[in-house]
Simulated scan of single mutants.
Amino acid sequence: MSERLVVVHPDAEAVAAGAAARLLTLLLDRQSVSATTHIALTGGTVGIALLAHVAQSPLVAAVDWTGVHLWWGDERFLPEGDGDRNEVQAHKALLDSLTHLPSENVHTMPAARDGLSVEHAALEYTQELAQWAPEGSTVPPFDLILLGMGPDAHVASLFPNHPDALTAGMGAIPVHNSPKPPALRVSLTFETIASSDQVWIVAAGAEKAAAVSAGLSGSDPVNTPVSAARGRSRTLWLVDAAAAGEAQPA
């Protein structure tokens, strides 16, 4: 049975620092039993701060980065090098400092370029996911998918009441008319997220308290997408006191 835990930190900085420590511990634990780990990263203020804390930790040198594969939960369909892309921010915060991380282990979602539609970008990522999938699956054996959450309870680029959110049968999907700019994005699907052994949701700020409460109460995923973000063995909510509101650790 899948386990759900809520960990409340005093503020956003503590959420990022705590999540970074947990991520490094998870990587070291997994590498004691497996040569390869697959992690999907998230963007956003807390998600990028998390990566910066990883870069600053002395434990970062203990990880065998040659065996770590990094993916993304979603990405803005913008030109390569655009500062609003999650992968650009992730490189600045952490990846550029990981000299032992092979470039082929960094699975960036396609950037916008001439002749490439967002539909084909999602298809390219779906195909890359499939290349690393074990027999009988269409996605890699994710050890962890990290997710931020918006005040509207969206995760990745799966927004409430949005026609793209419930797409099934693909590892990644194109997102049109995103209610949060930019309008075009690529996102992992709910199915891909649910395939991960663990899913961690990081959130901070009082403006997210209602979404945290709705997600923990199991509200309809159509209205509250974060409700569908669950790992196979563990779902971990890492939130600050303001976002937790009246939610209690469980």
Rank of each mutant, 00 (worst) to 15 (best):
S32H: 10
V7D: 15
H53L: 09
E124W: 06
N161V: 07
P134G: 07
L95G: 10
T167K: 05
P10I: 13
S227F: 05
R22N: 11
V88H: 12
G115V: 09
G67N: 05
M149T: 11
N86I: 09
E3L: 13
S213V: 11
L95R: 04
D240H: 01
T66V: 04
A12I: 08
L5V: 14
E80T: 09
W65V: 10
G81C: 04
V199N: 02
L101C: 11
V226E: 01
G218D: 13
G83D: 15
K180T: 12
R234T: 14
P151K: 09
K208I: 07
T167Y: 02
L147A: 05
L146R: 00
D164H: 06
G215F: 00
S117C: 10
A35G: 09
L98M: 03
E13H: 14
H53I: 07
G44S: 08
L23I: 11
A93P: 00
A242E: 15
A243E: 08
S57R: 05
A93Q: 11
A20K: 07
D143H: 03
L50D: 13
D164C: 13
E246F: 09
G44H: 06
K208G: 03
A165W: 00
R76K: 12
A250G: 13
T235C: 01
A214P: 00
D29R: 14
D114R: 13
L94G: 04
Q131L: 14
A52T: 15
A204L: 03
S57A: 09
I173G: 00
P110Y: 08
R185H: 06
A214M: 04
L41N: 10
A244Y: 05
L146K: 01
A111T: 08
W65E: 10
V155N: 05
V106P: 04
P160G: 06
P225K: 06
R232D: 14
A49W: 06
A168G: 06
E87T: 15
G43W: 02
